[in-house]
Amino acid sequence: MTSTWYCALLRGITPGKPNMRNEKLRGVFDGMGFTGVASVLSSGNIVFAAETTDTTALEGRIRGALRGELGIGGETIVRSRSELVTLVDTEPFGELQHARETYLTATFLKEPLEPVPEPFPEPDEPAVRIVGYDPGARAVLAVSDNTSSSSPDFMAWLERRFGKDITTRTWLTVHRILKRMPDCA
């Protein structure tokens, strides 16, 4: 069987805590027998290759190992390289560039939205605009304007609307994750 490249998007990682440092996280993934283990930034993004296509099983196995070995209780969301490539290739943000006034984010949901609400809900925050929902990557895509002195409480809105089994990454981070994953296993 050939390996598939994945990224584990770990929720609630604080790099200042000793058990949440990249070397400890990578150690857990190495210990599970995954190959090509690497971290991206210091916010809980671990890329790896595995010989399974069952992402639900991977999520459970990783979550259990992180809790058992490091005492980390946050959620684990796994996306394959192909899911992330397809998301990026759709160019959901068009010509927008990531900046303070156009802060681009992808919020990955544990479970797909079924059905996808029409119209898609909009936050009460005037500084935030939902660009769309990508069903393949199970991601809510948004643009925030962070130039005002009061920062929008978009993360709280996301949790109220979609639950706590979510995790948000900047669009730049999504691109950095993909750069760490080889084109083939």
Rank of each mutant, 00 (worst) to 15 (best):
Pro115Cys: 09
Val37Glu: 04
Gly163Phe: 12
Gly64Cys: 01
Pro119Leu: 07
Gly16Met: 07
Gly68Ile: 00
Pro123Arg: 10
Pro92Asn: 05
Lys110Asn: 09
Met181Trp: 09
Ser144Cys: 06
Gly71Ala: 03
His98Glu: 08
Pro119Val: 05
Glu59Lys: 08
Tyr6Asn: 02
Val116Pro: 07
Val78Asp: 03
Pro115Tyr: 11
Met181His: 12
Phe154Ala: 08
Arg11Glu: 01
Met155Phe: 06
Arg63Asp: 09
Glu125Ile: 06
Lys179Trp: 01
Tyr133Met: 06
Leu141Ile: 14
Leu84Val: 04
Trp171Phe: 15
Leu58Tyr: 04
Pro182Trp: 04
His175Cys: 14
Thr173Leu: 09
Phe120Tyr: 14
His175Ile: 13
Thr2Phe: 03
Tyr133Thr: 08
Ala8Asp: 09
Ser151Trp: 11
Ser39Pro: 02
Asp165Lys: 15
Glu125Gln: 15
Arg63His: 13
Ile62Glu: 02
Ile62Lys: 11
Ile130Trp: 09
Thr4Trp: 00
Thr53Val: 06
Gly60Gln: 07
Gly36Ser: 07
Asn45Glu: 07
Pro126Asn: 08
Ile166Pro: 12
Leu172Glu: 05
Phe34Asp: 01
Ile72Val: 13
Trp171Ser: 15
Glu59Asn: 09
Thr168Leu: 07
Gly136Val: 13
Ala38Glu: 15
Gly44Met: 06
Val88Ile: 15
Glu91Lys: 12
Ser151Ile: 11
Thr55Ile: 11
Gly60Ser: 05
Thr105His: 01
Val116Gln: 09
Asp134Ser: 11
Val85Gln: 09
Glu101Ser: 15
Lys17Tyr: 06
Leu66Thr: 01
Thr76Arg: 00
Tyr133Val: 04
Arg11Lys: 08
Ser82His: 02
Ala99Arg: 12
Asp124His: 09
Leu104Gly: 05
Pro152Cys: 08
Ser149Trp: 06
Gly71Asp: 03
Glu83Trp: 04
Thr147His: 10
Thr55His: 05
Cys7Gly: 01
Val47Gln: 09
Lys110Gln: 13
Gly44Trp: 07
Gly44Leu: 06
Met32Asn: 00
Thr173Asp: 12
Pro182Gln: 07
Glu23Gln: 05
Ala38Gly: 12
Thr56Val: 14
Phe34Ala: 03
Arg138Ser: 12
Asn19Ala: 12
Asp54Thr: 05
Leu58Ile: 11
Leu41Asp: 05
Arg180Gln: 15
Ala49Trp: 10
Lys164Ala: 14
